[in-house]
């Protein structure tokens, strides 16, 4: 059978459920698992998965920053918006569709951070796009 090479986006409820990291105990108070990308593991002592607490993404990042100093600064701009260079997901959703830093979190949620992969030939056009995106995010 012909199998297309490209991956189709599927409804998120079909995505596989992330299996909890074995090191994290279910009864821990800090019950939000956070997956850290390679480029930010220098802040977490090399750890790929850490845990934290918070009612919103902003709270969670503040909590993580108390133990992994500098991490929040790589994810949040000086203006207080989520950085353009990262993608943050709660379970299977991009937080940009969940209120960005105001996204609500619950115990047992899994947060994944990935570097956004983007670029292109012309700096000016792209910079304008980024500025527009940042303004849109900040306005939310």
């Amino acid at each position: 059978m012909f199998r297309p090479l490209t991956f189709q986006r599927r409804p998120t409820h079909f995505l596989p459920v992330t299996v909890a990291h074995p090191i994290i105990k279910e009864h821990d108070i800090m019950a939000i698992e956070v997956r850290i990308p390679t480029i930010l593991r220098s802040y977490t002592g090399g750890a790929k998965v850490v845990e934290g607490a918070g009612d919103t993404l902003a709270d969670l990042l503040t909590d993580l920053d108390s133990r992994y100093a500098g991490l929040k600064g790589r994810l949040v701009t000086d203006a207080g918006a989520l950085h353009r260079f990262v993608n943050v997901y709660v379970n299977d959703e991009d937080v940009r569709f969940l209120g960005a830093l105001d996204a609500k979190l619950n115990d047992g949620d899994s947060v994944t951070i990935l570097p956004a992969v983007a670029g292109g030939a012309f700096g000016f056009a792209a910079a304008a796009a980024i500025a527009g995106h940042r303004a849109a995010v900040a306005a939310r």
Partner: peptide, 25 residues
């Protein structure tokens, strides 16, 4: 793994964030 350019632009590219999550996982 060819990815979709969600910017669909002659001067900019950007991975679709949901496709990227799937592929990275």
């Amino acid at each position: 793994i060819p990815m979709e350019n969600s910017a669909r632009s002659m001067t900019f590219y950007e991975f679709d964030s949901m496709e990227q999550l799937r592929v990275w996982r």
